[in-house]
Amino acid sequence: MIAKLLATLKKVWVVLRKPSVHYSLGFLTLGGFIAGVIFWGGFNTALSVSNTEAFCISCHEMENNVYQEMQSTIHFTNRSGVRATCPDCHVPHNWTDKIARKMQASKEVWGKVFGTINTPEKFEAKRRELAEHEWARLKANDSLECRNCHNFDYMDFTRQSPRAAAMHSTSLASGEKTCIDCHKGIAHHLPDMQGVEGW
């Protein structure tokens, strides 16, 4: 058993040691390196291209529904001129989470291409389910994407409206609630909220 394994290993080693007939070792190493860079770069470029708002709304269901709705909200235009784009709220910064979310989004693209959500009506019908995915995600990560821009530690309650300050200094400060518990529908129209906690 062990002898057989050793024999195979030896064969492999011999093949690996044999100089390349056509290309030099230097070429192969360098080539491999460059190919690696191109592949990795290409992957990440594709990733970052698909991480722009222009990409998100290049598909009509997004442009006609959620993007339109967002334009009248504070995250589209405001006095400070800071804009939140789709990936700011919907794509995690952390690499593994990012890939995971992309795979999930691909499912939604699949839904688009193969007709599950290719009309506004079908989108409306699916909206509660899609929204629930986002609520669950934000609830699970303590509204990380909101906090990337809104840092609780730097919130000045004295500059907030009394209502906001009252809520933020109690339920939020104690960790009992997170942003998405109270700020659902911050960027889009809400679906039918029957049965959602707090509605």
């Binding site: 009248s72 909200t73 504070i74 409206s161 209502r163 339920s171 529908g185 129209h189 809400l190 679906p191 039918d192 909220m193 707090g198 509605w199």
Partner: peptide
């Protein structure tokens, strides 16, 4: 006595009632 910008009140939801409903006034 406050802003209501973006508060959605239509057949699907009533944002006002998410605070002013009897069952919501505790929170």
């Amino acid at each position: 006595p406050h802003k209501i910008d973006g508060y959605q009140v239509n057949l699907k939801v009533n944002k006002c009632m998410s605070c002013h409903d009897r069952s919501r006034t505790g929170d």
